[in-house]
Amino acid sequence: MTVHDAATAPDSSVALTFFNDAEARTVEAISERIIPDGGDGAGATSAGVVYYIDRSVSGISQNLQHVYRTGLRALERFCQSEFSAPYVDLSAEQQDDVIRRFLGPEVVGPAETPQMYGDEVGERGELDRDLPILRRLFAVVREHAIEGFFCDPVYGGNRDAVGWQLVGFPGAYWGYTAEQMGPGFDGRTLPIATLSDLRRQLQEKSLPDNSTYYGNEEK
């Protein structure tokens, strides 16, 4: 797994503002296992999730810088001792297994707490000391990956709106008409719009009048 190919990334958004290159590759690899590409081009890597996370952590989420920096170091220690290889070089199955240990299994029943690595009696010295930060790291990456997959592309993630296309979310709309809200209308037929599209429409004054939306007559 490598950093997203600059050729397919728009503009200058492959530069980094917090992570070093190795960190970015690791975060991208974890994110891709949390939201894997299903063969349809929609996964964390193609969405550029790591760039969303990088900008968040250098900006609004500065308070989480230590979680990434020390957490990723701890993850490397763990992977070296367990697999003698860095996380990015593990097979997808091994990567999932690491996630299961620290984030818990994919499916957790309603009332259960996930059984995770370290719930057993610990005998691993330094690695046990790393447990809290590793659990925190994976919880934070999961949350950030979801945000970076579904955010407006202006935040650096959800490139080409792949996350929105996957789930059928049309994005930043000024409004919806009576016809669009009516029975039998499948919103997946709507074109996707981003905040940048909306801003352009506002500047060009090309948005329809609000009555197009609040009016109840179907056109």
Partner: peptide, 28 residues
Amino acid sequence: PIEIAHAMPPAAPRWGAGFRDWMRDNYG
């Protein structure tokens, strides 16, 4: 979408292909 990703049923996968596919099939 993020709000729904936070409100998924307890029996749905929290990560991995199952998470992704649940959102794809059910969000709408």
